[in-house]
Simulated assay, not measured.
Amino acid sequence: MNWFYSLELNQVDLYMAQSKLVKDIYISKVLERSSFIEQQHVDNIAAQIKKFGGEPTMLGDIISPILGKTAGNITAAFGVTSLLKADIMLEKKAMSDYKDLIIKIGKDDELFSLLWSNLIDEDLHTSWFASKVEELESLH
C-alpha cells in the first residue's frame, strides 16, 4: 500500500506543477482537478494503511512530492502534448498496479472498493488525457 501512497503523492505534485505551467486554462484546470483527486487517493490510502496498523512511508512523504514537482516542471517544458503523453504513461502504470493488487487482495469490501475507485479515476484521467492529445495532434 505504501507504493500506492508514494505514487499518488507523486501525482499530486506532478499535476499541480503542470497546472501552473500550462497556458491553456482548460488543461490547467483539468490538471489542477486531477491533483485534487490524487490527493483524495493519498488520504484514503493513508487511512487504509493506518487501519491495518501501519504508517504511511516517511520516505514517500519526502521524496514523492519532490519527484512529482520536478517531473511536472520538466514535462511542461516539452509542451502540452508531450506532457499529456507522459501523464498517460504514469496513469497506465498506476492502473496496472491497481489491477494487480485488486487481484491479490480479493474482496475485502472497504479496501476492494477503494482500489476500484482509484483505478476508475486513473482510467478517467487517462481517457481525458488521450482524448486531448488526439485533439491537439489533429490541429497540427
Rank of each mutant, 00 (worst) to 15 (best):
A76I: 04
L111F: 14
K104T: 03
G72L: 08
F112H: 12
K107W: 03
E91W: 02
K50P: 01
E8R: 02
G106V: 06
F52Q: 09
K99V: 04
D109F: 12
V42S: 02
G72I: 07
S82E: 11
I120H: 07
I74S: 05
N10R: 12
N73R: 15
V30M: 10
S64G: 04
Q39H: 08
K104E: 13
A130T: 13
L67I: 15
F52H: 11
A86D: 12
F129A: 14
I74K: 08
T81D: 08
T81N: 09
I105Q: 04
I66Q: 09
I25N: 13
W128Y: 13
F4G: 06
N73A: 10
L136M: 08
Y15M: 10
S35A: 14
K69R: 15
R33Y: 05
S113M: 05
F112D: 11
S34I: 04
L114W: 01
I120C: 00
V133R: 08
Y98P: 07
T126F: 03
L136S: 03
S19H: 08
L115G: 00
G79V: 03
L7Q: 12
N118F: 03
A76P: 09
H140Y: 11
S117I: 00
I63F: 07
K51H: 07
H140V: 14
L136D: 04
I63P: 00
T75V: 11
N10H: 14
L59V: 11
K69V: 05
G53V: 06
I120D: 06
G60Y: 01
I66H: 05
G72P: 10
L9I: 02
G72F: 05
E8V: 00
L115S: 02
S127C: 06
I105P: 03
I102K: 04
L7T: 09
R33F: 08
S19K: 05
S96I: 09
S34G: 05
G53C: 06
T81Q: 09
L7W: 07
L139W: 05
G54M: 01
L7F: 10
A46H: 02
Y26T: 11
Y15C: 11
Q39A: 07
D108E: 13
R33N: 10
I103K: 15
T70E: 08
E122A: 09
N73H: 12
Y15W: 10
I66K: 14
Q18R: 15
K132H: 05
L139E: 10
G68R: 06
E55N: 10
G53A: 04
D43W: 01
W128E: 02
D13H: 15
G72M: 07
P56G: 02
A47L: 08
